[in-house]
Design a protein around this nucleic acid. Structure first.
Length: 631
RNA sequence: GCCGGUGUGGCUCAGUGGCAGAGCAGCGCACUCGUAAUGCGCAGGUCAACGGUUCAAAUCCGUUCACCGGCUCCA
């Protein structure tokens, strides 16, 4: 007698064993949409035979768990199709990921994106034929025999720490896999292969590069269509495209990874910096500036020479070796050391908008997001060891204010711990890591841990922001450092009259101003809020003889501290409006006879359209209601 | 750096071995205009660079560079 329950339903079956599929049927929970079952909290194949009863629920593809199973099964379906079209192909790993799945394959010859439709067609054939998917458990030894001619599966099986493994077979294709999977390929309808890329076996660049095919699958055709549409739309907010269209910045072959900022890009950057300065003054920071090029000896002392040399640009002055700074910390330490410091001076928050150069490998450059020179909104804060948590909390408060209140970003937080290539003792690292953890936990900040991802001098908390297609980029970071102050003999005199070594906190909020601008461009799709817009007000004279009034307005707006612009072209009104809209200017002011006479402006708002005529005072009042963190 | 793809006027793109094209932008002329593209005309390219094959190369081959999608690495 087996008893199965689902919520308040239950049924008794007079048998010794039963498949989960039959159990669902007995409970009246079966339908075409069901692809797997949740049995006692475990995701299982419908075909799984159980010898005792329990809690059971159907899993459908319209739930997150179901979608993951569907995508994983779609990856297997793709693998089977690839095996048919390219016999002899070996398979690496093929998991479901956010928004889809991939499979890494080792295929003779090359597959290009042009081959994807062919593979898709084969997948549809297999799915149409309803290819059955069957699980088979076997011992590791049997599995090793089974996959004897497959070096990748052999490696995976060898590394598995369990006596037996499961293998999923569908037709001529079989894969080492934990499962669960759809019962047969006919459950898979709405999928698309998206792109092709190289990927190192097991993510290690010393290993062979496999061919990775990305694809996605959804429960319904509409969801698939919607996803593809969203991706297309996202491309329109790509900061590289908008940067060109809006004349913000450019990149040139003459300086790969070294962005050029145009007047409008600089208007945004300077406004950001203006905001940044005001906010830092409020929070007790002072600002310094240190040189671009410093003696190599300094970098040897700081540890950069040993741990960061690959990323540094080197030069020579009067036959003496120098390096272009990849970080601002050593310069800051030299400033700190110019005086004898007291505990009363601490925390000493020395901020610096430092332009750093780092050699990045050619394949990683990406618009403003990944460049070879960028401006860090840095600070090096020197504190007493007992004040770490307090200071970290203060920085986290600043981060939250900037990301959430000012820009409305969603962000994720990561704690990165000691890397292999690092300086310092285990005790120091432990103390630093637990200080950061403590700060995160006392503020209930959700975070994930990145083991081994810290800087060479200390652990860090990173803040990640998303770009338009969901890739995340590290922006803010808080890094604890117990190493550099000691290396530089930086000290302070404590309350006890003795010399102590301060703890150094490296931190950035924007991270890289360049990267942050890239994120902002995509976040706003180029339609910057009023306070950041490079052109805030576009004055549009209707005809030539309204130019004088337009110039008068221009002068007035300049005196208000705005960034105005006149469209003086001999064009029709409609054309000027259209162009200003496309340039995403927040306010368009149409001025003709009526306005000139009454000394008013015809206000058109980018987001709302024509607001009608109003006096200059009324317009100013309207602007004063705009969000503006600088005022 | 690695794998795959791409490179034609400022931008978007056609052109697959036989005289380099279109639209938009630019410039000139006309229109003096009321809330998302006025009309006509003109000019603009060493087809990424270098080398090769060919009677002939934007087109085929090779090398390099840059860019795009990933991997690895990172703010």
């Amino acid at each position: 007698m087996l008893v199965f329950r689902h919520n308040d339903k239950s049924c008794e079956i007079d048998k010794d064993s039963l498949t989960l599929h039959d159990a669902l049927k007995a409970l009246g929970l079966d339908s075409k949409k069901v692809i797997a079952a949740d049995f006692n909290g475990e995701h299982s194949d419908l075909s799984r035979t159980v010898t005792s009863g329990g809690e059971i629920s159907p899993i459908t593809a319209d739930t997150p768990e179901g979608l993951e199973i569907l995508r994983h099964s779609t990856a297997h379906l793709m693998a089977q199709a690839v095996l048919r079209l390219y016999p002899g192909t070996h398979f690496g790993v093929g998991p479901a990921i956010k928004d889809g799945f991939y499979y890494d394959i080792d295929v003779a010859g090359t597959i290009t994106e042009e081959d994807l439709p062919k593979i898709e067609a084969e997948m549809r054939r297999i799915a149409g034929a309803g290819e059955k998917v069957a699980r088979e458990d076997m011992t590791k030894d049997d599995a090793l025999k089974f996959f004897a001619d497959d070096p990748y599966k052999t490696e995976l099986i060898t590394d598995i720490d369990a006596p037996s493994v499961s293998v999923y077979k569908q037709g001529e294709y079989a894969d080492l896999c934990r499962g669960p999977h759809v019962p047969d390929a006919s459950k898979i309808h709405n999928f698309k292969l998206l792109s092709i890329a190289g990927a190192y076996w097991r993510g290690d660049e010393h290993n062979k590069m496999l061919t990775r095919i990305y694809g996605t699958a959804f429960a319904t055709p509409d969801e698939l269509k919607e996803y593809l549409r969203r991706m297309e739309e996202a491309k329109l907010r790509d900061h590289r495209k908008l940067g060109r269209d809006l004349d913000l910045f450019s990149l040139h072959e003459e300086g790969p990874g070294f962005p050029f900022f145009h007047p409008k890009g600089m208007a945004i950057m300077n406004t950001l910096i203006d905001f940044w300065r005001r906010e830092h003054v409020k929070r007790g920071y002072t600002e310094i500036k240190t040189p671009q090029i410093l003696d190599r000896e300094l970098w040897i002392r700081s540890g950069h020479w040993d741990h960061y040399r690959e990323n540094m640009y080197l030069t020579e002055i009067d036959e003496k070796p120098y390096a272009i700074k990849p970080m601002n910390c050593p310069g800051s330490l030299l400033v700190y050391k110019t005086q004898l410091r007291s505990y009363r001076d601490l925390p000493m928050r020395l901020a610096e908008l430092g332009l750093v150069h780092r050699h990045e490998r050619s394949g990683v450059l990406h618009g403003l997001m990944r460049v070879r020179c960028f401006t860090q909104d840095d600070s090096h804060t020197y504190i007493e060891p007992t004040k770490i948590k307090e200071e970290v909390l203060q920085i986290m408060d600043l981060d939250k204010y900037v990301y959430t209140n000012v820009f409305g970003f969603k962000y994720t937080v990561e704690l990165s711990t000691r890397p292999e290539d690092s300086m310092g003792t285990d005790e120091q690292w432990e103390a630093a890591e637990s200080a950061l953890r403590d700060a995160l936990e006392s503020t209930n900040t959700p975070y994930t841990v990145n083991p081994g991802d810290g800087a060479f001098y200390g652990p860090k908390i990173d803040f990640h922001l998303e770009d338009c297609i969901g890739r995340t980029w590290q922006c803010g970071t808080i890094q604890l450092d117990f190493q550099l102050p000691g290396r530089f003999d930086a000290t302070y005199i404590g309350e006890d009259g003795a010399e102590h070594t301060p703890v150094l906190i490296h931190r950035v909020v924007f991270g890289s101003i360049e990267r942050f601008m890239g994120i902002l461009i995509e976040h706003y799709a180029g339609a910057f809020p009023f306070w950041l817009a490079p052109v805030q007000v576009k004055i549009i004279p209707i005809a030539g003889d309204h130019m004088n009034y337009a110039r008068e307005l221009y002068d007035t707006f300049m005196s208000w501290g705005l960034r105005p612009e006149i469209d003086s072209r001999e064009e029709k009104l409609g054309r000027k409006i259209r162009d200003a809209q496309l340039q995403k200017v927040p306010y368009m002011l149409v001025v003709g006879d009526k306005e000139k006479e009454a000394h008013t402006v015809g206000v058109r708002k980018r987001s709302e359209g024509d607001l009608g005529s109003m006096s200059l005072e009324e317009f100013r009042e309207l602007l004063s209601k705009e969000f503006n963190p600088i005022h």
